[in-house]
Amino acid sequence: MAKKEKTGGLIKGFVIAGTQSGCGKTTISLGLMAALLRRGFKVAPFKVGPDFIDPGHHAGITGMAGRNLDGWMLSGRYNRDCFKKHTLKVDIAVVEGVMGLFDGYDGKSEAGSTAQMAKWLKLPVILVVNAKSMARSAAALVSGFEQFDKDLGFAGVVFNNIGSKRHLEFITEALDGNVKMPCLGGIPYYNEIILPERHLGLVTSLDNPLSDEYIDKLADIIEENMDLNAILDSLLDVDQPEKLRRTPVRSPAGPVRIGVAMDNAF
């Protein structure tokens, strides 16, 4: 699908979720953003959960700050307002999830999970599965994720760390007839695109900006290995009819001046 004319008030969007942390969610999200941007779409990035490093990388690619959404700290209404506010002038929203799809505040509820956010925003999920050391069993994993929450919609599944063409064939054969969601592709293992480890929390986009070559490479990988046309064609427009609340307060005492520390240190 070529770039679609924006019809005003309607956007498309999806959520990238993993089966667990470290399955390649960030890399695939960044690649999708880069590929969509290269096709001429205006992309609004979002991140579920209290993370400021991924949103920094989102901004490095899309030119728009990756906005944080959070199902535990913030209400459904607040998240929907935030999503709406930052998608008014874009074509597509890419929401990167946090940890595994159903992981959140605790084991008892869906609070804070990517699944909860996808339902709140009425967006379908693209499930990322690390297929390393796995073949037919991958279908069982996808089946379990598909059935765990009946209210959740999936756009499809993408397999990461695919070893060979035959490896992906094994998996798609196993999916056939066993799961409803389509297979959107399989990404081979590339060691040159691994993002620097971030456990110290200091490898931010400011300290380690992504190079243009790297971003281009990510977009190439997505275009070569994922069916982006099928994804775009399957996405429904997200209608956002509600009006944003905006009630600025005026006081006879005049504006209040609040200093905000803002530099490299803060």
Partner: peptide, 27 residues
């Protein structure tokens, strides 16, 4: 939204606090 005018400053580079502040926020 509640009537505040935000004035950014740099504790690293600026010699003085902005003038006429009524409050300060440090993230």
């Amino acid at each position: 939204n509640h009537g505040a005018q935000l004035v950014c400053f740099s504790p690293v580079k600026d010699d003085n606090l902005p003038k006429n502040l009524d409050g300060i926020y440090f993230g």
